[in-house]
Design a binder for these strands. Structure first.
Lengths: 132, 132
DNA sequence: CTTGACTCTGGACTATACTCTAAGGTTTAT
DNA sequence: ATAAACCTTAGAGTATAGTCCAGAGTCAAG
């Protein structure tokens, strides 16, 4: 059983973040010392690792909570359940990608129409476009 | 001079949003009635249009504030200034795009390694991967 | 036995962009 | 004249993901 500082160091997150995750139901230390210090067991450490990994692939904390539900109840869940969850997230990411690409194109169109020269911007095509 | 409700309707934003923009220095009505009602002049209406257009191409409110600065002082600004601003934003969008693509790929790798079948998820490659 | 490192809690603060509510005043239409 | 529609302000709430701080308690080492 380790204390919060050590876990924070090991997991490369801050103590505050661990407490924040706890407040949001992602990880609860298995025990406390008499003085109230959090004590994390091996399984807790793994759980934090899971959270960190899931963050790295783009899951939100909310999604991670659902993933942890799947992980904990994996014996009554199927691979299909897990894969569907991931595929749903891929869909969301694709939608975001589409929107960001649209924005990129709009901006590029804006930029390309502009001479970018020393001229005063009184007739700048960018400003003109935004004014319509 | 029109009141907030009409402007909101015309500009397709809520009254609250207009007041929110005002609080954040994006748009201030040119006048007020004796009763304190906001009165928007033609130039104010244009300004809101500018804000809405800029939002549509992905600028944040903070960036729009800077853009409005450029717009208002356009006679002492060059096309270069404006274009540089847009090009900088394109860079930011490109970085976001790169990150979102990375996430997409990670998720796809995760998904592809999973059988997605009826099997219990006890050996699910997705959960296994996140546990490392 | 005291100093420094560590931990606790609760709550404020950051950034982004609103949205909603309460309690009241004003204007317009009937 | 009165009701509906519109407007005002201040402030709280939403979602996301933390970060920081104060004031206090705990623990290990010299």
């Amino acid at each position: 059983m380790i204390r919060i500082g050590k876990l924070a160091h090991q997991s490369q997150v801050s103590r505050d973040t661990l407490r924040f995750y706890e407040k949001h139901g992602l990880i609860t230390p298995s025990a406390r010392t008499d003085a109230g210090y959090r004590l994390y067991a091996e399984s807790d450490i793994k759980r934090v690792g899971f959270i960190v990994s899931a963050k790295k692939v783009g899951f939100t904390l909310n999604e991670i909570q659902q993933l942890l539900q799947l992980e904990v109840t994996k014996d009554i869940k199927s691979c299909q359940d897990v894969k569907e969850f991931v595929d749903h997230k891929i869909q969301l990411v694709n939608e975001q990608l589409t929107e960001t690409r649209r924005i990129k194109k709009s901006l590029e169109t804006l930029s390309e129409a502009c001479c970018g020269g020393d001229e005063p911007a009184t007739q700048c095509t960018i400003l003109d476009t935004l004014n319509r």
